[in-house]
Design a protein around this nucleic acid. Structure first.
Lengths: 356, 356
DNA sequence: CTGAAAGCGCTTACAG
DNA sequence: CTGAAAGCGCTTACAG
């Protein structure tokens, strides 16, 4: 509560009208004469009237607050998401309550419960890998991959991968190394699927799963990228800017010039991508759009909930929206070196060939 | 509202007791016999009773929600802050409503207003540079620098700087270049003050303000670090890991080996610091502790507000807490090269000398 | 166009 | 230990 500020009643008595009239005037539902409404508004402004959300919520059954459930706030992509959702929600008149599941399913479940207890009207969930959001008892918009069942909005990760690969292949690269982190991630698999889909013209791509490598060699181990360059790889396509950064610095540390000897690409246009030397070529999601669509779907479901789901329901959006990705070309990609060995088992550019 | 879930009354009638008794049993205030209380709790659990926040808030005048006002969610440090505050607040029984001021004072003011409208009991504010938080009408905890008036909790940025510089000087570095971003930042100035304070033994430090440089040469311009190395600088101490990353990659790109030819340090232990090659030596704040202190101060002020500030007030914490920083030594720092030129106007190590 | 009344779900004195 | 009553501030039918 914004402490006992001026109440509706106070302005009613001050003007000698009823509370109902004040309420109507302030909500602008037009059941009050223009003059009276004007007078009421001016008094309200004068005494600094702030309507009590609690009173309103109790009466209307709506809190005008949505929850934002994130798999792990410390994810570097989170600021973008949170900022976009906060903006979209504010614009739609909603507050945003955050909940962090810290990568843990049990915590996620608990976080969702707490949000319900706090009376959110709905929530935007960015699910933890592999989580399926059960019926939580309020409208939910899921932001994940188009391949996730129950998903509401997502960036077109697959197409983002395609764009990156097309860019690289277009520059002349024929041997790519895809840097993935966790093979269980839907998002990463979508991106990789897209990357591979562009491997025509005798181009080929191998995938390295970093987390797997780290399981045997320890966290922060070398990725052996210099060796890959020696084998003829000319481009490294990471599934996130974090991995791209790791690749870039490992290559530089090994004395390999980027982009002259090897190109590096990332994903997500995270904060450091334009800052690093050479700046990272990457793919940007339209977070504002994703957030707007998610919030719109949610608001609609909240409205529909009244009519269709009188006491509980799970009105997830029916249609999945795919938001396009945008390629951002910077200095970390260039034509491959001309003295590079052709890949061992690659035929001359002619037809699309199946790749490993 | 968590849609019309089971109400308190329902469980009251189900057991043939009064609503008051149910309320008392559930709140555990001990005015109910153990057996009855147990029975009530079990029924509540059975029917999945979730108390209505709105009803409670209206009655008690407390929303059990605090606001978190951030200068710019897209700041890479934000995830750490948000996660820590969310955790501390949850643990204290509070929800967290986020508000982003997008670096704009007017937006910050508006965001604070909206939070008040939503009925927050208090808020944690990480103020925009140079903003002074006026009386917002509810308890506020400010997280900034100890040098900010009205500040509640902060990391000891100055001492963090001192630790970094001590580490570098201890390794043998005598010519440092401090990489700052914005000279108007209190945090950065505190850090730099600490860095300079350790410049004894004939060591000296020069400061480069990146934003200033960019104003003349354009965003993403070269920092001219290779030139600095040629002039005899052997260590680069950035005021944030983002700048450290920029320095590291620029040096690597210029063919300068880190740490063999030059050391690089950062600040904040952001997500990429351990991932990069060589991993960044940096300083970590104890965000969990900062968040706990901020939330504690806030909760206390909220409680005190009842008694001391009946209708409005600005109970900011009276004592400023300084949370210690922790040095994290990684591979980006080492002994300076032995063939380095001594700094032009530096006397042999003897006394602490004034530095430029 | 305006008002009187009821009630959203809870908790808190106050009685018993 | 338990209950009846009042009321937090608002909005929404329903009358007039």
């Amino acid at each position: 509560m914004a402490r006992s500020g001026p109440k509706l009643t106070r302005i009613a008595t001050a003007l000698g009208v009823s509370a109902a009239t004040v309420s109507n005037a302030l909500s602008g539902k037009g059941r009050v004469s223009a003059e009276l409404a004007e007078k009421i508004r001016s008094v309200a402004a004068e005494i600094g009237y702030v309507p009590s959300q609690a009173g309103r919520a109790l009466r209307t059954g709506k809190s005008a607050v949505i929850g934002l459930v994130l798999p792990d706030i410390s994810n570097p992509l989170f600021p973008q998401i949170a900022q976009a959702i906060e903006f979209a929600a504010s614009s739609a008149g909603y507050g945003v309550l955050i909940a962090d599941s810290r990568g843990d399913v049990a915590v996620q479940t608990r976080a969702i419960e707490r949000l319900i207890e706090r009376g959110v009207d709905g929530m935007v969930i960015v699910p933890r890998r592999g989580t399926r959001i059960a019926d939580v008892g309020c409208p939910v918009a899921v932001v994940d991959t188009p391949s996730t069942p129950g998903n509401t909005v997502a960036a077109d990760h697959w197409d983002g991968g395609r764009q990156i690969a097309e860019h690289l292949v277009g520059l002349g690269h024929r041997r790519l190394l895809i840097l993935g982190n966790n093979p269980a991630s839907n998002v990463q698999n979508d991106r990789i699927g897209g990357l591979r889909s562009a491997m025509r013209e005798g181009a080929q791509a191998e995938t390295l799963w970093i987390e797997r490598l780290e399981q045997v060699h320890g966290k922060g181990c070398s990725l052996g990228l210099a060796g890959k360059v020696a084998e003829g790889v000319t481009a490294f396509a990471a599934v996130s800017d974090l991995q791209a950064l790791r690749a870039l610095t490992e290559l530089q540390r090994a004395g390999i010039h980027v982009p002259e000897q090897a190109s590096v690409t990332g994903f997500d246009d995270l904060i450091w991508s334009p800052v690093v030397t050479p700046a990272l070529t990457t793919i940007r999601m339209d977070m504002a759009r994703i957030a707007t669509l998610a919030v719109e779907a949610l608001v609609q479901a909240i409205g529909a909930g009244e009519a269709e789901f009188p006491s509980h329901g799970r009105p997830v959006a029916a249609t999945i929206s795919k938001v396009p990705m945008q390629l951002v070309v910077r200095q970390s990609t260039a034509t491959p070196p001309s003295n590079v060995q052709p890949a061992p088992n690659v035929k001359p550019p002619s037809e699309g060939e199946p790749q490993s």
